[in-house]
């Protein structure tokens, strides 16, 4: 009974982690939600959730021979289960991205919704793996030509690997009226609806500085309300399968040699 979403953008700086955490908190009002920092090379979920001192992280779970169990790296925060990733380059280099599949499989047992905060790149296997593992991708873009073009690339990669598009979040919007025209035109090309047009917000920056999610730090801000609405638009299909873990275990990524 779980649906896994990759929150992805192709381009850095679009507010992907803010979006992952905000959607997670909003969805947690109805579902059991687990958010995972799958951006193992540039982790920052820990900074958004007050987990900078986390003892065990996803890195520990991806290193061969680690004594850590998945449960060790799961933290109950803000009504969600949060799996942060560490920021050590050494741990990133030691991590085996293929192990993410087994970690997601285990997390799936206790979740309705899994959100994978995905790397802002398409150039390596570890960057693309979260998109491959997910059932659907939520694409986060700013209303700029480069961000839209990279967002479309993410969608096409995802579709090529059997992952559908759940929708598009237009983030850091400075002119909502103009951006709404852009969103309308963009809908022709994206295979999912516009989930939200989120205004550029000092509240989001302040939340990040405070190490707290936007929805906890400034729940009444326009940006937080936009994310709440986005979660409402997202038609979660927490599937009927009884064999969720098997589904992820048999997912696409090949076994490590």
């Amino acid at each position: 009974m779980v649906e896994a979403f990759a929150v992805a953008s192709g381009k850095g700086g679009t507010g992907k982690t803010t979006t992952t955490v905000a959607l997670g908190m909003a969805l947690a009002e109805e579902y059991d939600v687990t958010v995972v920092d799958a951006d193992t090379g540039m982790a920052n979920l820990l900074f958004h959730t007050g987990l900078t001192d986390a003892d065990a992280t996803l890195h520990d779970l991806l290193i061969a021979g680690s004594a850590r169990s998945v449960e060790d790296a799961v933290y109950e925060r803000f009504g969600m289960r949060v799996v942060p990733c560490g920021t050590s380059l050494e741990a990133f280099e030691a991590a085996d991205p293929d192990r993410l599949r087994a970690v997601v499989a285990e997390l799936a047992a206790d979740a309705d919704v899994i959100l994978l905060d995905s790397p802002a790149a398409l150039g390596s296997k570890s960057a693309v793996l979260p998109v491959v593992l997910a059932d659907r991708v939520a694409v986060v873009v700013e209303p700029t030509i480069p961000a839209l073009s990279d967002g479309l690339k993410v969608q096409e990669y995802a579709a090529s690997y059997g992952t559908d598009t759940a929708g598009v979040v237009f983030n850091k919007v400075r002119d909502p009226e103009a951006a709404s025209d852009v969103a309308e035109k963009a809908e022709r090309y994206f295979d999912g609806p516009t989930l939200a047009t989120v205004p550029d917000s000092d509240a989001a920056r302040a939340a990040r500085r405070a190490g707290a999610p936007l929805l906890a730090h400034a729940p009444d801000s326009d940006a937080a309300r936009a994310y709440q609405a986005a979660a409402g638009t997202l038609d979660v299909r927490a599937g009927e399968s009884d064999a969720v873990a098997d589904r992820f275990r048999s997912a696409v990524a090949p076994d490590s040699p």
Binding site: T144, L148, S149, K185, R188, Y189
Partner: peptide, 11 residues
Amino acid sequence: GSMDAVEAFLD
């Protein structure tokens, strides 16, 4: 002007 350019791109 940039939103006009983005719209032109999408057209």
